[in-house]
Amino acid sequence: MASWSLTQRGLSRGLRLSASMHASYGRRMTSSLPEHLRKALAYSAMYPDLLPEPDLTRRNYVREMLERQDMLSRRRAIDIPEFYVGSYMSITVSDQNAPGKKNTFVGICIYRRNHGLRHQMALRNIVENEGIEMLYDLYSPIILEIKVLRLQKRLDDDLRYLRDALPEYSTVPWDMEPEPHREQGSVPVDETRVIMKPRPWTQRWERKELKGVKEWGLEDRFFKRAVEVSKPWEKYDLMKEYRCMVPLEDQYVVWKEVEEHRKTIEEEHKRSRRRKLLDA
């Protein structure tokens, strides 16, 4: 009984752990977990869109099943590769106004949000000294191609602070070639820590518990106030964690379908990707 509660707790914490904690604490934790729990942890990071939203008042089995069916159908029509916040990506969409009716944007993924078919991701890049961000619906049929140029994670799950960091940290070369990444094994973590621009910022980043910032350029009073305003008890709030999580029994239903999808459709997409790289 004790071991089950530990692994349950470990899994629930692991599912909310950021990539950096995976690197240090998480790896130790995950190696002691049984395989199905380890897979659940990995899949919830790889496919955050396939999990339903945890709000109990909005959950419905039939709707979730049909939404998942639609998402996997779309993943059959187009290769949606594995990517994380911090990966360098290139997305091509159909655009009525563009010269060849196609428009490509290259950038670093700074956040992912929403569940199911509403899942969105944002890319950021500095183009001709101007910072530009583009938001995409992952399941929109307007998207023609999603290419991951460099598969990596960063120290944080949300890189919106790059807006207030020096521009070199948001720059991705426009003509970057896709780098080969190891299909098996863990995802590399880019431990870059950024230097912030002088204030004013878009948000009070010093209050957000960020790990990816090296130099803040702030006086001590900001950090003192951040400590006063912080809520350190929240990480011990079990009910809050429970409310943000989908129960394991419901997750297994999802991951079972995902396993099937990985064996069939994703293998096909991987093969065609490799073929394209060899031909090029």
Partner: peptide, 27 residues
């Protein structure tokens, strides 16, 4: 979605008929 978000509010000066006053745009 699909509307680019710039880091600054940019403007290009034009005359009444819509022709730009300059001849180069930097962004």
């Amino acid at each position: 979605v699909l509307r680019p978000r710039f880091d600054s509010n940019n403007v290009v000066l034009i005359d009444d008929s819509g022709n730009p006053l300059g001849n180069r745009i930097y962004v």
